[in-house]
């Protein structure tokens, strides 16, 4: 019998995952979705071909604790800032985490513009989970 009320535990982390724009590389983000689920998080998966507007709307409605995107097609220097700007315009203080193919030289640029964490090929499950938990903890 489940008798304890849920709010005595650590609140469940809710993460919105999406592919922004046309990039169709979704193997990694789907793996990440399962990794986060298996770490006890609730993952709202938006899928492919999302816009900054659809991601902002989902983040609001789902009360997301974090937003995770993956970028593989070298559009990150345009796409990540446009996502951050959209979050800023909507007055949403939610950490943005990015995975995929990000050349080393671009990491400081993205971090400088406000991306909370960046993970690349081969990132182990543990690192993925830690990055999300850490980014969420840093904002609360």
């Amino acid at each position: 019998m489940a008798i304890e009320s849920t709010n005595t535990e650590q609140p469940t982390i809710r993460v919105v995952l999406a592919k922004l724009g046309l990039d169709g590389h979704d193997r990694g983000i789907k793996v990440v979705a399962r990794i986060l689920r298996d770490a006890g998080m609730e993952v709202v998966y938006l899928g492919l071909r999302q816009t900054t507007a659809s991601i902002v709307a989902a983040a609001e409605e789902e009360d997301a604790d974090a937003i995770g995107l993956s970028m593989h097609n070298a559009g990150h220097l345009a796409l990540a800032p446009s996502m951050l700007a959209a979050l800023h315009d909507a007055d949403l203080d939610i950490p943005l985490i990015i995975g995929g193919i990000i050349p080393e030289a671009d990491i400081p640029i993205l971090e400088g513009s406000g991306v909370a964490a960046i993970l690349g090929p081969g990132a182990p499950a543990e690192e993925v989970v830690t990055a999300v938990r850490g980014a969420v903890a840093a904002r609360t």
Binding site: R37, D38, A39, G40, E42, V43, V44, Y45, G47
Partner: peptide, 13 residues
């Protein structure tokens, strides 16, 4: 998930 308590919610797609 009955094992981990996590979930993947995909209906918005």
């Amino acid at each position: 998930s009955p094992l981990t308590g996590g979930a993947i919610l995909g209906d918005r797609v």
